[in-house]
Design a protein around this nucleic acid. Structure first.
Length: 870
RNA sequence: GCAGACGUGGCGAAAUCGGUAUACGCAAAGCACUUAAAAUGCUUCGAUCAUUGAUCAUGCGGGUUCAAGUCCCGCCGUCUGCACCA
C-alpha cells in the first residue's frame, strides 16, 4: 500500500498487455464447450470512436466476459463497415484517397477500442473494403444471380443533376440535393435489384418466432412489410379508345364502397397514361410537372392533389349505364398495387381532397352514426372512415363492410371480362425490391460486363475479384469509375470482343448483411465455411442502435434466407437475441446563434439554479435542451479525454449504471465523477483489508455478523448474475452498491474483527471481484492480485453460490390491516398458513388495532404478505 | 393520419406473478476529521400536519380486487417509427 490512489492509466495498460500476451480472448472453433456468439453492430470508420460506440461495446463486453466466466466458448469479434460516401467526400475535400482515409481511421479507432479493454478476438478482424471480403461478396452475387434472386429493372429515383448521382429520399431536403443544393429530378434508371419482395410473406411470418427481439422492432418490421388484403377489380372502358387494353385494373381494400365511386385515377407513369400522352400535348405537360417534384416526405405532406381529366370513361361493374371518369393523378403510386385506384370521396380522405378540388360527386355508402346530412363532407372536408352499415348501395344495403366485401367478390369473380374474371383476391405488400446499384466509387464492384453482342455477361468466378482501380481522381462530381476508360474497357468473357464493365457499386447495406457469418471463419476461401457457420450461427445476442430496426436488420434476415438457398448458411434467422440500446445524450450550450462545446464552459450551481459561462472570458452561455450527442450541436464528449482522466473502467461503469440500457443515457460530468469515486472506493476497501485477509481461507460462516456477510455475498452473487443474464446492467450495479454498503463497515474495522468474520469478508471480496469483473475488468484483476490471487479473473470460472445461504430460514413478511401496512411478522420460512395466521393475531399492533373485534377475513400469501380485513 | 411505447422525489431510476412504493446512484443540507480546502467517514432527505404518530402521494377521472405504479375503461401529455400504400 504505497500509493493512496488507484491509477487507471498505468494499471489498465498493464492488464490489456497481459490479456493479449496470453491470448485470452482468442476463440477456437473446435473448442468442445457450449458456444455463445455475442456481437455488437460493427462501426463505420468515421475517424474516432464516440460515446455511442463506448456504450454499445461496453454492453456487449459485459455479456461476453460473463458468459466466458460461466463456461461458454464465446465468440466476440470486431470489424469495420468500411465502404461508403464519407470516404469519397473526404477524398473530394482533402485530396486523400478513400482507401487511405479509411484504413487510417480504422487504425486510430482500433487503438481506441483496445484502450477500453474489450474482450475481443482481434485475430478475426476484417473491413468490408478488404479485397478478401468484397471478393467473397462478388461470389455471392454470382450465386444469387444464378438462382434468379437478382434482377435488372427500371425504377424512379431522385437524381441530383450537379453531383450526377442518385439520392436516397433522406438526402433530399426541400426538393434539393443535400450536398449540391440542386433541384432534384425524377429519373427512370435501370438498376440491379435483390428480390426481397419474393420473401415478404416469409419475412413477416418469421417475426413471430423472434421471441428474444424487442416487440417494438418486430412491429416496425411488420408495418414496413405492410401486408394488406383486397381485390383487383377490372373496370371496362366505355369506349374502345385504347389500343392495348379493354379495361383498367384497380387494387382496393374497400370493394364494399364500390357504389361510392366517383372517379378512377391512374399513376403518372401508368402504361395507359403513357399511351394517352402520345396523342395529348396537355397531358405531356402535366406529366412533366409531376416529375419535377421530388418524393421526399416534406414535399409529399404538403403536396396538393393534382389531376388531369382524360377522355376515358369506364363502366361501373354493377351498372353498365353508369360511366365513371378517368383521371391521371399525382398521388397515385405506380409501384403499389396496380398503379390505379378507384376514388370513393365519402370514405377516404385523399379521395375527398381530390373530389373537392375537381368538384366530383361525393356519395356516402356507409352510414354515419347520428347524422344523415351528407353535405357535411364538402363543408368539414373530413372523410368518414369508421365502420357502419352499407347504404345507397343497392343489393349491399344493410350489410357490414366485411360482408359487402365478400358479396362484391363473389359476384364479380363470376363475371368474365376479356376472358378473365372481373375481380380477384389479391395480397399486396408494401415492401419493394431492394435496389442495390450506387453510382459511387467506394463500394463493392458489381461483377457484370456489358457486351454489345452478348448482352449482360457475368464475370466468371475464376476472374474474380473485380478490383477497384487505384488511380482515380475526385476533382469532378459523379462516379470516377464511370470516366475511368481503361478500367471500364474489358474483354467479353463470352465472345472476347471489347465490352465494358458495370460501373455501379453495391449499396453498403449489402456489405453489412452477411459480415456476422464471415466472422465465424474469416479465413475461408468460399464466402463462408459451412462447418464454422453451422457451429456459431445464429448469433445469441446482437446489440446495436434502434436506428437499424428496419433496414439493416431486415436486409440481414433476407440475406440469411438467400444464403441458405445458395447453400452458404444452414439457417433462416441470423439473430436469435436482439437488443437495441438507447442513445447517449448531452445538454446543449449556445452563445447566441453558435453552439458551444461542453469542454469550453463551466457550470455554476447556486441556490438551486444552474448557469453556464465561457471558461475563457466568463461570458454567460445559454443552457439548452438535452439532445443526442452530435458534432453539429457540439454537445459531444470525446471518449479519449475521459479515458485519459478517469480510465476505461470508470467510463464503462458510468455507461452501464443509472439508465436502463434500452433507454437514453444523459452524459454528465458529475455522473462520471460518481463512477470514478466508486472505483477508488473499491480499491481503497480492498487495500485496507488486504493485509489482514491475504492469508485467510475464504469460507462461508453461519453465525452472527459473519453469517450476515456471507448471506449477503451469496444473495448478491446470484442476483447480479440474474440481472446480467437479463441485460439489466443498471440493476446489477445497484445490487453491487448495496452489497458494498453492507460489507464496508466491517472492512474498515477489520483489525478488530474475529477470524470468522475475516473469513466471510475474504469470500465476500472475492465474490465482489467477480461481480465487478464484467463491467470493470481491469480493477477486478488488480484487486484480485492485491488479495494474493494468482489466476486471471478474465480466465476464471464464476463462483457458485450456496443455496443454503440464499434461502433464509427466518423471513420477514409485511402485515397489512385493510390493505395498509401496519407492521411486520418474523417467522420461519417453513411456517404454514395456519401457523402464520396464529402468529399474526398475537402481534401487539394487531391486537391493539383489532381491539377485541374478530377479523372478517385473513389473507395469507406465504413468503409475501398478510392482510387482515376487518 | 396510422402504428407503437412511455408518464413514479429536485434529477437518473427500482419495485419478478397484482402483495412493504420511492431500493441504488446523483444533487442538496448538517456533523466529524483538518489551520483551511479538497478527499474521506457518519447523519438527514416524497408532501402536509404533528408529541408518539397520522393523513395524502406513482399524469388526470372512473372501475375491478382483501390488496393497483402494475389489470380494465375514458381523458391529458411526451417520445419513437411509418406515411399520397388505395
Amino acid at each position: 500500500m504505497t500509493t493512496k490512489y488507484y491509477n487507471p492509466s498505468i494499471t489498465e495498460k498493464k492488464w490489456q498487455a497481459i490479456w493479449e500476451e496470453n491470448a485470452i480472448f482468442k476463440t477456437n472453433n473446435n473448442d468442445p464447450r457450449k458456444k455463445y456468439y455475442v456481437l455488437e453492430m460493427f462501426p463505420y470508420p468515421s475517424g474516432r470512436i464516440h460515446m455511442g460506440h463506448v456504450r454499445n461495446y461496453a454492453m456487449g463486453d459485459v455479456i461476453a466476459r460473463f458468459k466466458r466466466a460461466k463456461g461458454y466458448n464465446v465468440l466476440h469479434p470486431m470489424g469495420w463497415d468500411a465502404f461508403g460516401m464519407p470516404a469519397e467526400n473526404a477524398a473530394m475535400q482533402n485530396k486523400v484517397h478513400p482507401r487511405e482515409w479509411t484504413y487510417r481511421n480504422i487504425a486510430i479507432m482500433r487503438e481506441q477500442l483496445k484502450s477500453i479493454g474489450l474482450s475481443i478476438d482481434w485475430s478475426r478482424e476484417f473491413a468490408t473494403c478488404d479485397v478478401d471480403y468484397y471478393h467473397r461478396q462478388q461470389m455471392l452475387f454470382l450465386d444469387m444471380y444464378e438462382e434468379g434472386l437478382i434482377i435488372r429493372k427500371t425504377s424512379k429515383v431522385n437524381w441530383d443533376p450537379i453531383d450526377h448521382t442518385v439520392l436516397a429520399n433522406e438526402q433530399v431536403v426541400d426538393g434539393r440535393g443535400w450536398r449540391s443544393g440542386a433541384q432534384v429530378e425524377q429519373r427512370e434508371l435501370t438498376q440491379w435489384f435483390l428480390r426481397i419482395s419474393d420473401y415478404s410473406e416469409e419475412l413477416l411470418k418469421g417475426l413471430n418466432f423472434l421471441e428474444k427481439w424487442p416487440a417494438k422492432v418486430r412491429t416496425m418490421q411488420h408495418n414496413w412489410i405492410g401486408k394488406s388484403e383486397g381485390l383487383i377489380i377490372r373496370w371496362q372502358l366505355a369506349n374502345k379508345n385504347s389500343e392495348s387494353c379493354a379495361y383498367i385494373e384497380v387494387y382496393t381494400t374497400r370493394p364494399d364502397t364500390i357504389f361510392g365511386v366517383s372517379f378512377i385515377a391512374l399513376a403518372v407513369d401508368h402504361p395507359l397514361t403513357k399511351e394517352l400522352a402520345r396523342a395529348d400535348k396537355d397531358l405531356q405537360i402535366f406529366i412533366k410537372e409531376c416529375y419535377q417534384s421530388d418524393t421526399s416526405i416534406a414535399t409529399l405532406e404538403t403536396a396538393e392533389k393534382k389531376g388531369f381529366k382524360t377522355e376515358l370513361n369506364v363502366l361501373h361493374p354493377f351498372d353498365s349505364n353508369w360511366k365513371v371518369p378517368v383521371y391521371v393523378a399525382n398521388f397515385v403510386v405506380m409501384s403499389y398495387g396496380t398503379g390505379a385506384v378507384f376514388g370513393c370521396p365519402a370514405h377516404d380522405q385523399r379521395d375527398l381532397d381530390f373530389a373537392n378540388a375537381y368538384s366530383l360527386p361525393i356519395r356516402p355508402v356507409i352510414s354515419l352514426k347520428n347524422n344523415e346530412d351528407y353535405t357535411i363532407f364538402s363543408i368539414t372536408k373530413v372523410a368518414h372512415t369508421k365502420d357502419g352499415t352499407l347504404i345507397h348501395s343497392r343489393f349491399l344495403d344493410g350489410m357490414t363492410p366485411q360482408d359487402a366485401f365478400k358479396e362484391v367478390e363473389n359476384r364479380l369473380k363470376k363475371n368474365m371480362l376479356d376472358g378473365r374474371p372481373q375481380a380477384e383476391k389479391h395480397i399486396q405488400f408494401r415492401l419493394r425490391d431492394w435496389g442495390i446499384s450506387r453510382q459511387r466509387y467506394w463500394g463493392c464492384p458489381i461483377p457484370v460486363i456489358y457486351c454489345d453482342d452478348c448482352g449482360i455477361v457475368l464475370v466468371p468466378k475464376i476472374d474474380l475479384p473485380v478490383l477497384l482501380p487505384e488511380n482515380v481522381n475526385f476533382d469532378q462530381p459523379g462516379n470516377p469509375l464511370e470516366r475511368h476508360e481503361k478500367w471500364k474497357k474489358v474483354k467479353c468473357p463470352k465472345c472476347s470482343r471489347f465490352a465494358r464493365r458495370e460501373t455501379d457499386t453495391m449499396d453498403t447495406f449489402v456489405d453489412s448483411s452477411w459480415y456476422y457469418a464471415r466472422f465465424t471463419a474469416p479465413w475461408a476461401k468460399e464466402p463462408t465455411d459451412i462447418e464454422a457457420v453451422s457451429h456459431w450461427l445464429p448469433i445469441d445476442q446482437y446489440i446495436g442502435g434502434i436506428e437499424h430496426a428496419i433496414l439493416h436488420l431486415l436486409y440481414s434476415r433476407f440475406f440469411t434466407r438467400v444464403m441458405k438457398k445458395i447453400t452458404h448458411i444452414h439457417i433462416e434467422e441470423p439473430f436469435k437475441g436482439l437488443f437495441t440500446q438507447g442513445m447517449v445524450m448531452h445538454e446543449t450550450y449556445r452563445d447566441g446563434q453558435n453552439w458551444v462545446s461542453p469542454s469550453k464552459i463551466r457550470i455554476v450551481e447556486k441556490n438551486g439554479s444552474r448557469t453556464a459561462m465561457l471558461l475563457s472570458s466568463g461570458k454567460p452561455i445559454t443552457i439548452g435542451s438535452i439532445e443526442k450527442m452530435s458534432k453539429s450541436k457540439k454537445n459531444v464528449v470525446d471518449p479519449d479525454d475521459i479515458l485519459a482522466s478517469y480510465g476505461a473502467d470508470t467510463i464503462r461503469w458510468f455507461m452501464l449504471s443509472d439508465s436502463p440500457p434500452e433507454r437514453d443515457v444523459i452524459w454528465s460530468a458529475v455522473g462520471i465523477e460518481g463512477a470514478y469515486r466508486f472505483v477508488q472506493r473499491i480499491w481503497r476497501l480492498v487495500n485496507v483489508a488486504a493485509g489482514e485477509l491475504r492469508d485467510i481461507a475464504p469460507q462461508a460462516v453461519y453465525s452472527n455478523a459473519a453469517g450476515e456477510i456471507s448471506r449477503a455475498a451469496h444473495c448478491t452473487l446470484k442476483a447480479v448474475a440474474d440481472d446480467i443474464e437479463k441485460l439489466a446492467f443498471n440493476r446489477a450495479i445497484a445490487q453491487i452498491y448495496e452489497f458494498v454498503n453492507i460489507i464496508s463497515p466491517s472492512l474498515q474495522s477489520i483489525s478488530q474483527t474475529d477470524e470468522g468474520t475475516k473469513s466471510a469478508l475474504r469470500q465476500a471480496l472475492e465474490f465482489l471481484i467477480f461481480m465487478i469483473g464484467p463491467m470493470m475488468p481491469h480493477l477486478a484483476e488488480e484487486c484480485h492480485v492485491i488479495l494474493g490471487g494468482k489466476k486471471l479473473i478474465a480466465n476464471s470460472a464464476w463462483p457458485a453460490f450456496d443455496t443454503a445461504l440464499t434461502n433464509r430460514d427466518g423471513i420477514t413478511i409485511p402485515v397489512q390491516i385493510n390493505g395498509k401496512k401496519r407492521g411486520e411478522l418474523i417467522i420461519t420460512s417453513s411456517a404454514n398458513q395456519a401457523e402464520i395466521g396464529k402468529a399474526v393475531l398475537s402481534l401487539d399492533f394487531v391486537v391493539t388495532r383489532l381491539n377485541g373485534k374478530k377479523p372478517k377475513k385473513i389473507i395469507i400469501v406465504p413468503h409475501r404478505i398478510v392482510n387482515i380485513v376487518t
